[in-house]
């Protein structure tokens, strides 16, 4: 895990469910075939209603038409991010689009587990509501050691909740890597 990352914000509202993150009709693509799995990046967040896509103005697709990756690599969202189905394709799709960090007010349980155990995303929780303070396209920096989000455009700093119990799994890179490190399973 890097100590810091920087990039551009993509801002969303509350209750972004897994059907908005990756619509069910796209769950048929292979996740192991390198070329085919790019489709998950292509369709990431493709079912978010237009006016809520890229707040505050909306109408900004996460991934541009015909592309497989996003210009935005840090998602700022409201409460209950990832609610709905158990599809691991959801955090996977966001990861395939090139985004590795989500900062939300809260998460649905299965999405949170999948993000951590699959090693797809760092699911930070913010200490205060951020999706009304940060705009889509803002340049941001995340300091993982200090659990801090910095808006580089005006140098505002926002505290993030420490990752707690799941930090060792995130640092290992996922559940299997963690289990190998701790001797629970053998290295292949």
């Amino acid at each position: 895990m890097d100590k810091k990352i920087s990039g551009f914000a993509y801002v969303l509202g509350n209750n972004i469910d897994t059907d908005q993150i990756i619509p069910a009709e796209h769950l048929v693509y292979s996740m192991s075939d390198e070329e085919e799995s790019k489709k998950y990046g292509q369709f990431a967040l493709s079912s978010v209603p237009k006016k809520e896509a890229g707040l505050p103005h909306g109408g900004i697709p996460f991934v541009d038409e015909g592309k497989n990756t996003s210009l935005y690599n840090i998602i700022i969202a409201g409460a209950n991010f990832g609610c709905g189905s158990s599809r691991e394709h959801a955090p996977y799709a966001i990861n395939k689009a090139g985004c590795n960090v989500v900062i939300a007010e809260s998460y649905a349980r299965i999405f949170y587990r999948n993000a951590v155990d699959g090693g797809f995303l760092v699911p930070y929780e913010c200490e205060q509501k951020l999706n009304d303070k940060i705009h889509t396209g803002d340049k941001l920096e995340i300091d993982f050691e200090r659990n801090l989000l910095i808006d580089l455009s005006d140098h505002r700093e926002f505290k993030l909740k420490p990752l707690g119990d799941v930090l060792p799994i995130i640092e290992a890179g996922g559940l299997f890597e963690y289990a190998r490190k701790t001797g629970m399973i053998k290295t292949v």
């Binding site: 189905s85 158990s86 587990r113 155990d117 559940l175 299997f176």
Partner: peptide, 25 residues
Amino acid sequence: TDSHTCTSGAFGMFSTGVGNTDAAF
């Protein structure tokens, strides 16, 4: 590997949904 796995709880058991990585584990 389905969010509605919680349905089985009607039988006085613990049941819950997980993703692919957890299921593979």
